[in-house]
């Protein structure tokens, strides 16, 4: 870790406190000139492609999940070459400390962090509470264009296996825990898309058999910060029934909401093996000869 890690009571209870920073910590770091030498880079990643332009943390750069991180031709993430070019253009070096924040309780920020992790970027952290908390606290926001000094970033091969699950992996995973982070209506099959969001073309409604339903936002408090360790344990160890050492797969609709849960399981509760199934319901719900369960019951392991 190249930048000092924040120490506070809430974070120190987590398995990897170095993965979060508070708004106070970031504000103090910025005041101290942390952005000057590229050791610390602040990245905003939002659902809305224009939100950053309406005002962002001074000195922060924007990374868009759709235009920057996805490869539209392969339904995959960008490769090492494209990621290196993106990072370099944003002023990020391999040893930079990257702090990511975004809208909607860091939903998309967690997704960007997960993609950074696919490339093994070592020191990448989330701003606890994200964009909304920063603004609610009246902290500095600007529409000034950030012009980062280009950095050098090596071409690193993406390593999917440790934190990314494909459909075949999920089929082979049956018998081990799955977490469905979508809304209850999506889980039961009453609807195939998020409430108030447009239909996204899944042919069947329901969930992956045996998956526990823990909507992603339950891991966030009202101010968008992650709930404390005790609350997260009640949710995932208690309600979902996970046990220490479990190998877990989380999924949602296209893998963005489940990145938020992936972060909580991996870094806050310390599960070693947690994978995000980014194909999620838009793949599973449409796939041929793949079983689903309907209704509120988790269902049983398919024969």
């Amino acid at each position: 870790m190249s930048y000092p890690v924040e120490q506070n009571d809430k974070f120190s209870a987590y398995a990897y406190p170095e993965r979060l920073v508070s708004t106070e910590w970031l504000a103090a770091a910025l005041d101290g000139g942390a952005l000057a030498d590229g050791k610390l880079v602040v990245v905003e990643s939002d659902e809305d492609v224009l939100l950053y332009e309406t005002g962002h943390i001074p000195g922060s750069v924007k990374i868009d999940w759709h235009t920057d991180l996805n490869d539209e031709v392969t339904r995959d993430y960008v490769d090492g070459k494209a990621f290196a070019a993106l990072a370099a253009a944003k002023g990020i070096s391999r040893d930079s400390t990257v702090v990511i924040y975004g809208d909607k309780s860091n939903w998309w920020a967690a997704y960007a962090l997960w993609v950074f992790t696919l490339f093994g970027h070592e020191d990448v952290r989330l701003l606890d509470g994200g964009r909304d908390k920063w603004i609610a606290e009246g902290r500095a926001i600007t529409t000034d264009v950030t012009a980062p000094s280009p950095a050098e970033y090596p071409e690193v091969e993406r390593k999917d296996a440790p934190i990314r699950a494909f459909k075949e992996d999920v089929l082979a995973h049956f018998g081990k825990p799955l977490i469905d982070v979508r809304s209850p209506e999506e889980y039961t099959g009453q609807r195939t898309h998020m409430p108030a969001y447009p239909e996204e073309g899944a042919l069947r409604g329901g969930h992956i058999p045996t998956a526990a339903s823990i909507p992603w936002a339950r891991a966030a408090a009202e101010d968008g910060t992650y709930r404390n360790r005790g609350e997260l344990e009640a949710l995932y160890l208690g309600e979902a029934g996970l046990k220490e050492g479990d190998d877990v797969v989380a999924y949602c609709r296209i893998g963005e909401r489940s990145s938020h849960t992936w972060f909580a399981l991996k870094y806050l509760l310390g599960f070693d093996t947690v994978r995000n199934y980014d194909g999620s319901w838009t793949e599973w719900g449409n796939a041929v000869r793949v079983p689903i369960a309907k209704g509120a019951e988790r269902g049983t392991v398919p024969a």
Binding site: D48, V49, L50, L51, E53, T54, D103
Partner: peptide, 9 residues
């Protein structure tokens, strides 16, 4: 809402 600039656009 202002936090939905694409939709507003």
């Amino acid at each position: 809402p202002p936090e939905a600039p694409t939709t507003r656009g």
